[in-house]
Design a protein around this nucleic acid. Structure first.
Lengths: 171, 171
DNA sequence: TTTTTTGAAATATGTAACACTTTTCAAAAA
DNA sequence: TTTTTGAAAAGTGTTACATATTTCAAAAAA
């Protein structure tokens, strides 16, 4: 027996899927499918960034206080292929805002400038130093009085591995 | 004229695409297509994390020094739907590793515990404070001697907006 | 009349299929 | 021996389709 027939407003409404939006097929490398699905499904990583010191109520996404939306990966990693992470040990770089256990984001493609914080290997040991360059002389400055600056000469067993672009401190 | 015919080894080799891997179509919400394409194409955000203080040469992905790979979004944001960013202003929280201009990652779904760093609105002004809870009394402690602790009473114009889980300090 | 059941309608979704592009290499031509 | 050529094999974006899900008015039941 027939129930109904053509009628307006029947059927599943548009945008009733989990995304509330139309979808389209995109080719994804098989190994990345799960990560992309997580990225899409569970996660919305373009999160709101608010300007601080608001005087009125709490800023909501509809507010003018919204500075924009931010994706941490895109914000903090300019060259993914040349970027790696290391965890800092010790308190010798607190002057640069680096504390014990902090995660350092290191870009190997960036050129160290005077004042850059860099990852350097000195005598085979990796460490964080501030790079100083003046009077044609390059030095590695620990921000710890217990150590003295290291002057870089040709042939030294010292090498810069990358520039620290950001420090992530967990509370 | 015919050139060739069936022969082994002819044709484009498998895995010769930009991903070096097979792909398959996955449905993506139209508004996210571009972000996903960037995520897939240009970017590989699961970046290597190295253990510091290596004694030998520079750690490479093949090394034992590799602690694992890390995605900043997944690592730093547990509840994307409840997370937002604010930028810190002023130097009143350096004791907690928060410096002027730092990006704060705030989770609204997390319960403030004694010692948590929280975002609170006090008299309509948003600020960062350390939450203290003892003897059944809750207080907001600025890490700045110029301000005094705020004791939270019922009916106060003070509200906790979320717990600061991480601080991102750019160099 | 009111409530419950039902199935056609409309959309969502994963994937096969396609049209087209790109790459490769052995055979043909030079 | 070197260069040209085109069929073969695989990559890629999109359409198409089979199936699943959701909705609601009409039919049936109470």
């Amino acid at each position: 027996m027939s129930r109904g027939g053509k009628r307006q407003g029947a059927g599943r409404p548009k945008g009733a899927g989990p995304y509330g939006e139309e979808t389209k097929p995109v080719r994804i490398p098989v190994s990345q499918v799960d990560r992309v699905r997580r990225f899409i499904r569970n996660r919305e990583y373009a999160l709101p960034l608010f300007a601080c010191r608001v005087s009125a109520g709490f800023p909501s996404p509809a507010d003018d206080y919204l500075e924009g939306s931010l994706d941490l990966n895109e914000h903090l990693v300019r060259e993914p292929a040349a970027t790696f992470f290391v965890r800092a040990r010790g308190d010798s770089m607190t002057g640069a805002g680096i504390h014990d256990g902090d995660l350092l984001i290191v870009d190997r493609s960036r050129q160290a400038k005077d004042g850059s914080v860099v990852i350097a290997s000195i005598n085979g040991e990796l460490s964080v130093k501030r790079y100083a360059c003046s009077n044609g002389q390059a030095r590695l400055m620990p921000e710890n009085p217990a150590y003295s600056p290291i002057i870089l000469n040709e042939g030294d067993d010292a090498r810069l591995w990358g520039v620290v672009t950001s420090v992530v401190h967990r509370l």
